[in-house]
Nucleic acid binder design. Structure first.
Length: 684
DNA sequence: ACCTTGTGAATTTTT
DNA sequence: TTCACAAGGT
């Protein structure tokens, strides 16, 4: 056994870092608590919350005040709530939920902010229009003329939006005979037209607000998609935060209400928090000082784990000045060997030491190979580390595509990627809607398929309590046990190797063998009525494709047949992936997706490129020895890569392997600095 | 030599 | 959507 012995001295030292936080709470001095990966950050946060409850709870209750705790994700919110236990004194939530709760009742003020925003957006669009080359060349009168013509022919425009350049040109030639040179480049012209339409939409919205029109009296927050629809009075995540900052900045009375109601604010994973929130917090603190009230703000996090674009990261010290820094250097996760490497990667003032006396016994190795070596490499360690379903090996790759492929559901991923729905404007929705571990986020069709695969999985698993078959448990309430058994017995006759066969078989059992009273249960379980193969296919055609011609139908049918032809086995692998209950020896993740988690054995597959950037990890290693010489922009890039590498490597508890499947070029010295040796794959 | 068009592929993650 | 790239036109 390693990582089990903590000496009394270390225990005491750890308590001291908590005491530092507590002292600052007592003195009402806001803090920034920094610690590396696996330090027990959440533990420190929870203990701080408990400290405030213990020492200030009665006072808070008496004045109906509360403690606010903000987390970055819903998962983290639930974790904090669970670990903290039931208390009314602490409001735990994501920042979006909290901000919206705070401002949503200020309807009038929000509309004022919205008007401000509309004007800003309109002015940005006008500028864009002005600088676009063919438009620029028109005189004032012609500009107005063009706007008028385009607005009058909006329908024609969108009808021809997706046609070939020449067809589009032909359609608009008669209308725009006076501006022939505008149509030389059709795609530029389309941009101009859309900008005109957007200005029109926003201006109209502004008018409607001013004239007090129905439907324009309040702003709505849409938390499902991250897309604003300003002209429909709808904002999403980023704009919500923007409005929050604006409205609280504008109205001092709101600041005072927040300060007096929530004298303790804790922010988890501050490095990922939007900069605007940090600005907001510093405004609050400033104002509290001005009016002589108390407020304590505690940031908990780690700049080296900032891997998302919008997070404030290391900029926090500029944005919120005067925070008392508290650093914890103990690590509760990894062996000494891992710590040596991750300390080198982060290369800052936090040098983690293990809290355990018995922290030796891990291993880190860096290998150079090719893409063809990946499977053998992983298999070698399956043997060497005695990996099994209980002691899994976790393998990190860069893209979801690779995760799907290595995990064994490549076909499913690819077939969805080919559908109109997911390759169209919703392309970036693909990963959320078919790979999300939170199955409530699954898209409509993925969800439907998920339900069918769940039935398949539950019926095959003898251990499943019958009641688990349906997500809507209530429908079983009125059933007698024997009826339930009878129904299950019938359902177990469903067979099928491919998805298509399985649907066919469900349909057969459903129509021929199932008693009427059970049919409703199947309908509810699957979320579709009277399932048949043809109806199901039509449903897919309708929901996943955008059919305009016979060619479209042929193409769509090919893809649907492919989807139907995938084996139930593969669908089950996908199903278990969604539920994060895979029983394989090797589990694959993206680098980013492992944040906050920890695994005994980790393999990282790395290459030069990430996304569109062909020079990514090699760029990092090449500049590792002397990053100071980089220009500002490249310094930021370096920082981003460093953080991603740090997050990935620090997941490992005991053993870490990196397999680099690209040419090393000038990266060697940097790699050796961190990982010591570069081993050829042949030396395994 | 430069511009325009059509085509096909695409990074990750959260709210 | 957005980007890169090849093909074809001027």
């Amino acid at each position: 056994m390693v990582l089990s012995k903590i000496s009394p001295i270390n225990r005491e030292k750890e308590q001291e870092s908590l005491n530092l936080i507590f002292n600052n709470i007592n003195r009402n001095e806001s803090i920034i608590f920094n610690s590396g990966a696996g330090a027990g950050k959440t533990y420190a946060l929870i203990e701080s919350l408990r400290y405030v409850i213990r020492n200030y709870g009665v006072h808070l209750k008496k004045h109906s005040q509360k403690i606010v705790c903000i987390t970055y994700t819903n998962v983290a919110t639930n974790e904090v709530k669970e670990r903290l236990g039931n208390t009314e004194l602490v409001l735990v939530s994501t920042i979006h939920e909290r901000i919206w709760e705070l401002i949503k009742d200020y309807k009038k003020e929000l509309v004022e902010i919205h008007k401000e925003k509309l004007l800003e957006e309109i002015s940005i669009l006008r500028k864009k229009l002005k600088t676009s080359i063919p438009f620029q060349e028109l005189d004032v009168e012609n500009k107005e003329n063009l706007k008028k013509i385009m607005i009058e022919n909006k329908e024609l425009f969108f009808e021809h939006y997706n046609t070939k350049a020449n067809d589009f040109r032909e359609a608009f030639k008669p209308l725009l005979y006076q501006f022939t040179n505008l149509l030389t480049n059709v795609s530029n012209f389309k941009k101009i037209a859309t900008t005109i339409y957007n200005i029109e939409k926003l201006s109209e919205c502004y008018e409607n607000i001013t004239s007090n029109k129905k439907g324009y009296k309040y702003v709505q927050y849409n938390s499902i998609y991250n897309i604003d629809q300003l002209h429909r009075m709808q904002i999403s995540h980023n704009t919500l935060i923007d409005y929050g900052l604006r409205i609280i900045g504008k109205f001092d009375i709101l600041k005072q209400i927040i300060i007096d109601k929530y004298p303790f604010i804790f922010i988890d994973e501050y490095q990922d928090t939007n900069e605007k929130i940090v600005i907001l917090m510093s405004h609050l603190e400033e104002y509290a000082k001005k009016i002589g009230h108390n407020i304590f703000i505690g940031y908990f996090g780690d700049t080296a784990q900032n891997i998302y674009e919008e997070g404030v990261g290391s900029k926090i010290s500029e944005v919120h000045k005067g925070l008392k820094p508290i650093i914890k250097t103990f690590n509760r996760r990894s062996t000494k060997e891992i710590l040596t490497v991750i300390n080198k990667i982060r290369n800052d003032e936090i040098k983690q030491v293990s809290i355990y006396d018995d922290c030796k016994g891990g291993s880190v190795k860096f290998y150079k190979g090719t893409p063809n070596d990946v499977q053998d490499f992983v298999n070698t360690y399956v043997q060497e580390w005695n990996v099994n379903e209980k002691n899994q090996l976790h393998c990190l790759v860069l893209t979801n595509k690779l995760v799907a492929e290595y995990s064994g559901f490549k076909n499913i991923y690819e077939v969805f990627r080919e559908t109109d729905k997911y390759k169209g404007i919703k392309y970036n929705q693909l990963n959320t809607e078919i790979l999300s571990n939170d199955f409530s986020k699954l898209g409509e069709i993925p969800k439907l398929i998920f339900n069918i695969v769940r039935l398949y999985n539950k019926l095959r698993n003898e251990m499943t309590p019958v009641i688990d078959i349906s997500p809507t448990v209530r429908i079983f309430d009125d059933m007698k046990l024997e009826n339930l058994r009878e129904m299950i017995k019938t359902l177990k006759q469903i067979r099928g190797n491919t998805f298509c066969d399985y649907i066919e078989s469900i349909s057969e059992v459903y129509t021929k063998k199932l008693e009427k009273k059970y049919k409703k249960i199947i309908d509810l379980t699957l979320g579709i009525e009277n399932i048949t193969r043809e109806a199901f296919k039509n449903h897919l055609l309708e929901r996943l494709f955008n059919i305009k011609s016979d060619d479209d139908i042929n193409r769509a049918n090919k893809i649907i047949n492919k989807l139907m032809g995938i084996s139930m086995e593969e669908y089950e692998i996908w199903y278990k992936f969604i539920l994060d209950t895979q029983e394989d020896k090797v589990i694959y993740h993206t680098f980013h997706g492992t944040k906050g988690r920890e695994f005994d054995n980790v393999i990282i597959i790395m290459e030069n490129a990430f996304g569109k950037d062909r020079e990514y990890f090699n760029f990092f290693f090449e500049n590792f020895i002397d990053p100071e010489k980089l220009e500002e922009k490249n310094k930021q890039k370096f920082e981003k890569i460093k953080n991603l590498l740090y997050v990935s490597c620090s997941r490992a508890i005991k053993n870490l392997r990196v397999l680099y499947i690209d040419e090393l070029g000038n990266s060697e010295s940097g790699i050796k600095e961190i990982f010591k040796d570069i081993n050829p794959i042949s030396s395994m």
